[in-house]
Amino acid sequence: PEDLERKVRELQKNGVSPEQIEKILRRDGVDEREVQELVKKVS
């Protein structure tokens, strides 16, 4: 979803590592495939 992507970009802009971003997304209940997609987009 659009807002998730925005969140991921925000986190990355704040210097959060892709690994941390993955953890955060998983903790928020984002589905694994979605997590991978989002992280791939920003890394």
Score class of each variant (00 low, 15 high):
15 G>D: 01
6 R>P: 02
43 S>P: 05
1 P>Q: 13
23 K>V: 12
3 D>G: 08
29 G>V: 02
15 G>S: 02
26 R>K: 09
43 S>D: 07
9 R>Y: 09
7 K>D: 02
26 R>E: 04
41 K>T: 06
34 E>Y: 14
9 R>V: 05
38 L>Q: 03
43 S>K: 13
33 R>C: 12
25 L>M: 03
20 Q>E: 15
43 S>R: 13
17 S>V: 04
10 E>I: 08
19 E>I: 06
10 E>Y: 10
15 G>A: 02
26 R>Q: 06
10 E>V: 06
11 L>W: 11
2 E>Y: 13
3 D>K: 05
10 E>W: 14
42 V>M: 14
16 V>K: 10
43 S>V: 14
32 E>P: 10
38 L>T: 04
31 D>S: 14
19 E>W: 09
29 G>F: 02
34 E>R: 14
31 D>I: 04
42 V>A: 10
37 E>N: 10
25 L>C: 02
11 L>M: 10
13 K>E: 09
1 P>D: 10
5 E>N: 05
30 V>K: 02
41 K>G: 09
9 R>Q: 06
13 K>I: 06
36 Q>T: 07
6 R>Q: 12
13 K>Y: 07
36 Q>N: 06
11 L>P: 00
27 R>P: 02
40 K>L: 11
2 E>C: 13
13 K>M: 11
25 L>S: 00
25 L>T: 00
12 Q>M: 15
1 P>H: 13
40 K>S: 11
16 V>R: 06
2 E>V: 11
14 N>K: 13
37 E>R: 15
4 L>V: 05
35 V>N: 01
36 Q>F: 05
16 V>D: 02
7 K>E: 03
36 Q>Y: 08
10 E>C: 12
3 D>V: 05
32 E>N: 04
12 Q>Y: 15
33 R>G: 07
12 Q>L: 15
42 V>W: 11
7 K>Q: 06
9 R>D: 04
4 L>A: 04
41 K>P: 05
15 G>F: 03
32 E>Y: 06
11 L>D: 00
17 S>L: 07
21 I>T: 01
2 E>D: 12
5 E>D: 05
8 V>M: 03
20 Q>M: 13
18 P>Y: 13
22 E>H: 07
12 Q>N: 08
43 S>L: 15
3 D>C: 14
9 R>P: 00
23 K>D: 13
7 K>I: 11
7 K>M: 10
16 V>C: 10
38 L>P: 01
11 L>H: 01
13 K>N: 08
7 K>T: 05
15 G>K: 03
14 N>W: 09
3 D>A: 11
25 L>D: 00
13 K>F: 07
38 L>G: 02
2 E>I: 12
3 D>F: 08
31 D>K: 04
24 I>K: 01
24 I>G: 01
40 K>E: 09
39 V>K: 03
13 K>D: 07
42 V>H: 06
18 P>I: 15
5 E>L: 14
12 Q>C: 14
7 K>R: 13
23 K>M: 14
3 D>Y: 09
1 P>S: 12
31 D>P: 14
34 E>W: 14
16 V>A: 12
40 K>A: 13
23 K>S: 12
34 E>N: 06
2 E>W: 12
32 E>Q: 06
6 R>D: 09
24 I>E: 03
11 L>Y: 05
2 E>N: 11
26 R>D: 02
26 R>T: 07
20 Q>N: 10
38 L>V: 10
36 Q>V: 09
20 Q>F: 05
42 V>T: 07
26 R>P: 01
40 K>C: 09
37 E>C: 07
6 R>M: 12
12 Q>A: 14
33 R>W: 12
43 S>Q: 13
39 V>Y: 04
27 R>E: 14
32 E>A: 06
33 R>T: 09
23 K>Q: 14
5 E>W: 14
26 R>F: 05
19 E>Q: 10
37 E>Q: 08
9 R>G: 03
40 K>H: 12
23 K>G: 08
30 V>H: 13
15 G>P: 00
29 G>L: 02
28 D>W: 15
22 E>R: 11
43 S>I: 15
26 R>V: 12
30 V>N: 03
28 D>Q: 12
26 R>A: 07
32 E>M: 08
6 R>K: 12
29 G>D: 02
8 V>A: 04
31 D>W: 03
26 R>C: 04
42 V>I: 15
40 K>P: 02
9 R>F: 09
23 K>P: 00
7 K>V: 09
11 L>R: 00
16 V>E: 04
3 D>M: 07
43 S>A: 12
40 K>D: 08
7 K>H: 05
1 P>G: 12
41 K>E: 06
34 E>F: 13
32 E>V: 06
10 E>Q: 10
23 K>H: 11
12 Q>W: 15
9 R>T: 04
27 R>M: 13
42 V>Q: 05
19 E>V: 06
40 K>V: 06
13 K>W: 06
9 R>K: 09
39 V>Q: 02
9 R>E: 05
11 L>Q: 01
15 G>W: 01
27 R>S: 11
29 G>M: 02
8 V>W: 06
1 P>Y: 15
20 Q>G: 07
5 E>K: 08
27 R>C: 13
26 R>I: 14
30 V>A: 07
18 P>N: 10
42 V>P: 05
2 E>A: 12
33 R>K: 13
22 E>Q: 08
7 K>L: 13
36 Q>W: 07
13 K>A: 13
13 K>Q: 10
14 N>M: 14
5 E>A: 10
39 V>M: 15
13 K>R: 11
36 Q>I: 10
17 S>N: 05
13 K>T: 05
14 N>T: 07
14 N>S: 12
12 Q>G: 04
33 R>Y: 08
29 G>T: 01
35 V>K: 01
11 L>A: 02
10 E>K: 07
36 Q>C: 05
18 P>Q: 10
28 D>E: 13
23 K>L: 13
3 D>S: 09
33 R>S: 11
5 E>M: 11
3 D>N: 08
42 V>Y: 12
14 N>F: 08
11 L>V: 00
37 E>S: 07
6 R>A: 13
6 R>I: 07
6 R>N: 10
12 Q>E: 06
23 K>I: 14
8 V>H: 01
19 E>L: 08
